[in-house]
Design a protein around this nucleic acid. Structure first.
Length: 556
DNA sequence: ATCGTAGGCGCC
DNA sequence: AAAGGGCGCCTACGAT
């Protein structure tokens, strides 16, 4: 059974042909009761409802998020509801109505007394999409019924896909992951603000009291680097061109001033060391400084917006620095009083996923151990580090260096896995969309300019090849990760635990101290449960490293 | 002024 | 050991 919901002046619900609305000042308790009483699959259009369910902490596990499923079926990250509906109904996208500016072109009020979410031509009413659906109980019920129809159309569409059962299960898990994202957005990540102030002060100095003070602090940070110059002069360290010129004057000819390039020279020259140290501090001062703290941290929680699907291949994204907090800042992520974190990350996830989606028997064999690179190195007759580099290179599309040498060995020993990657790369070169194992479409793009420059066209095709090659692995890994995350979310409820961070292959779960060990075991077991649900190959082994910590940075 | 892009760097 | 895939966010800068 599926029940669709929408919320405005009350709660709109639809189930099969029945539609009804509950118009009370606070309909959420009613919804909570309904959830407790039955376990339907809840259907909704997208963000607005997930935010509502998350904020009200309604414990829904089974859902169908029309917008999220649309992104999965058609690719791309934008999915305006008007387009979603038009696509499902086979309506022309170039006849999509737009919400008139200044109200002059608002759709005529020709709907009469009937609450009808669509116009005579079949398109959704822009004014409804824009929030008008919530104005009256009748509209709410109709909007919910319309979501139900959209979900049903998507379900039919999935029947026409190559592997409907798998595609359907991906649609469901991705929908639940979207709800988890809404919950993480609402709850935030526990952060110790005093530690944060201390770390920011270490890098950027005290909190500036005025614009002039800020300038002085900046100049003082710069001075440490500039003082190393043989001939003192003003250089804008924030301008890569000026830095490059400065290094040239010091005798360093470099194509650019990237850290990995400078790192090699670090110990030959105090100036380089000072510059690299400056950049680290500057990163914290600018991106993760006081302004960041003021904007994103409130009452001990760091909040950003999470999306389950925004990454090109379907990875999660997060704003507010949640996905790229520098490691030196990670001690700020601290469990609250009486709580601990269960921190766990999947081990060697991408090559294990490659084994699963390709079904390469020899590679599957290699996943049996904790370290899958060891048996690969043995087969190839190379060092472990070389084998690792070669496997990663094959998935990222590296073509040069030592990894390229081992590539031939990989092709010979793991032909099925390598063929899958090659096929994806070929699709990419031809600008043909690729599909992840779970059925997500990953859009490719055509060459923008046909300027007749063959070199550039070849380079662009090669870039698409690398992108597509990586997308089928990264995308499938993201699908498996999300299944793991929602499995943990579902089991967390009984322990009073909450998933507070997802980072591509890593989970952070906030849990009362007394249940921490139970939660850790649950998280580890969930790796197997998720593999059972997701993996097309039952004998691929997935592993996780799980720890109970007070701070995110407490890695044993 | 506002926008997009490039170089850079943080994380995976 | 080489510098390949993804994301968000910073500054500087040129185009609009």
């Amino acid at each position: 059974m599926s029940v669709a919901i929408a919320r405005g002046v009350g709660l709109g619900l639809a189930c099969g042909d029945d539609r009804w609305a509950i118009a009370t000042p606070d309909p959420l308790p009613v919804l909570a009761e309904l959830v407790a009483a039955s376990a339907p699959r809840w259907v909704w259009w997208g963000d607005e409802t997930t935010a509502l369910v998350a904020q009200a902490q309604i414990p829904i596990d089974r859902c169908w998020d029309v917008r999220t499923v649309h992104r999965m079926l058609f690719g791309g990250s934008r999915a305006p509801l008007g387009e979603v509906w038009a696509t499902l109904k086979g309506l022309r996208l170039d006849t999509l109505p737009r919400l008139g500016q200044l109200g002059l072109l608002d759709p005529p009020s020709d709907e009469g007394d009937r609450a009808e979410p669509t116009m005579p031509d079949g398109h959704l009413r822009p004014e409804w999409i824009d929030g008008g659906f919530g104005r009256t109980p009748d509209r709410l019920a109709a909007w919910a019924a319309c979501a139900l129809e959209a979900a049903s159309l998507q379900d039919q569409l999935i029947d026409g896909r190559g592997d409907p059962a798998r595609c359907r299960s991906t649609a469901r898990s991705e929908s639940a992951a979207e709800l988890l994202c809404a919950e993480m957005s609402a709850a935030g990540l526990p952060v110790d603000e005093r530690t944060a102030h201390g770390l920011i002060a270490d890098a950027a100095g005290p909190r500036p009291e005025s614009a002039e003070h800020d300038d002085r602090l900046r100049a003082a940070r710069d001075e440490v680097v500039l003082a190393r110059l043989e001939h003192r002069r003003e250089v804008n360290l924030r301008n890569p061109g000026e830095v490059k010129a400065m290094l040239e004057r010091q005798g360093f000819e470099l194509p650019d001033t990237r850290a990995w390039r400078l790192e090699k020279l670090r110990h030959t020259e105090p100036l380089i060391d000072a510059l690299l140290t400056w950049r680290k501090a500057e990163r914290i001062a600018t991106t993760y400084g006081y302004a960041w703290l003021d904007e994103h941290v409130r009452e001990g929680r760091l909040r950003g917006s999470w999306s389950s699907t925004d990454g090109a291949a379907g990875r999660m994204t997060a704003s507010a620095g949640l996905h790229n907090l520098p490691s030196v800042m990670r001690p700020i992520v601290t469990a609250e009083e009486g709580h601990l974190f269960v921190r766990a990350d999947l081990g060697q996830i991408e090559p294990r996923v490659l084994a699963a989606v390709s079904g390469d028997r020899m590679l599957i064999e290699a996943t049996r151990g904790d370290d899958l690179y060891l048996p690969i190195a043995q087969r190839l007759g190379v060092e472990r580090s070389v084998a690792k580099l070669a496997v990663l290179g094959a998935m990222y599309g590296a073509t040069t260096g030592e990894s390229a040498g081992a590539l031939a060995g990989l092709r010979k020993n793991y032909p099925v896995a390598m063929a899958l990657l090659e096929q994806a790369a070929e699709s990419g070169k031809r600008s043909e969309d690729v599909f992840t194992h779970g059925g997500r479409r990953v859009r490719m793009w055509a060459s923008h300019k046909q300027d007749g420059n063959l070199d550039r066209a070849v380079a662009a095709a090669a870039a698409r090849g690398r992108y597509a090659r990586n997308a089928v692995i990264q995308g499938a890994a993201a699908e498996y990760f999300k299944v793991w995350a929602i499995t943990v979310r579902r089991h967390s409820r009984a322990l009073g635990a909450v998933v507070v961070l997802c980072l591509h292959d890593e989970l952070l779960v906030h849990v009362p101290e007394a249940r921490a060990d139970e939660a850790a075991a649950m998280v580890t077991n969930a790796v197997v449960e998720a593999a059972h649900y997701w993996s097309p190959q039952a004998d691929v082994r997935f592993v996780a490293d799980t720890q109970v910590v007070k701070r995110w940075s407490d890695v044993a």
